[in-house]
Nucleic acid binder design. Structure first.
Lengths: 107, 107
DNA sequence: CGGAATGTTCGACCAAGATCGAACGTTGCA
DNA sequence: TGCAACGTTCGATCTTGGTCGAACATTCCG
């Protein structure tokens, strides 16, 4: 597939509030985060069943990844994503929980 | 000045997570929210000392207002803004506090 | 009344962003 | 080896958004 495993993502210390907030401020990306949060483990892209095209999905994954909201691991043709919940909470205490709660209450 | 006091803003129930997150995901608007939070009472626009032009400031106030992040009250030539902290917390428990905390820790 | 202060709107500009289909590269399996 | 599956990138499109200066409307005070 694309480039090596050197997908860009910020370390915990590099997480920027504005980037994270922006990444979360899109309905599709919020849905992605919700699905990842509810999953028992990592989810492959296809498992997320996004309501947009494959390429748009890719774009959204990139935003989430580069904002530091998710991690990605490649295995074969698949990429497995996990929510960086621990990192996010360590860096911005309570934020991701509040977002997920607010999101759940809206559903 | 502009139109009557019927500035548009959502009621507590109408607050939308994505809109609030988006409103908060800009550095200037985050600064505005920070200033309002730290103030003892309402602040007039000029008191916020924004690092952008007056018109851009107006634009930002509008975004915050329409997302439901702030209230606005007119008095004379001035408009006084307050953070809708209670509403935000009631609707999205913990969110605004987490954002403000994260913001403070970044400073 | 004139001028200053205040804040908004408008128009323009440029950038960013969400979206899509096509093309592509990689993996895995029959 | 060929094909399917997977996910990315590219280019295009359209929308949204941040920015600015100018023009404007309102308020207030000397």
């Amino acid at each position: 597939m694309g480039p090596p495993m050197e997908l860009r993502f910020p370390t915990r210390d590099e997480l920027r509030l504005v980037d994270v907030l922006h990444a979360l401020s899109d309905p599709v990306r919020l849905q992605m985060v919700r699905s990842l949060d509810r999953a028992d483990g990592a989810l492959a892209c296809v498992e997320l069943l996004l309501p947009v095209s494959k390429s748009t999905g890719s774009h959204h994954f990139k935003v989430l990844r580069e904002a530091g909201v998710v991690y990605c691991r490649e295995k074969g043709t698949r990429r497995y994503y996990t929510l960086r919940r621990d990192d996010l909470d360590a860096r911005f205490p309570g934020l991701i929980d509040a977002v997920l709660l607010a999101d759940a209450n809206a559903s």
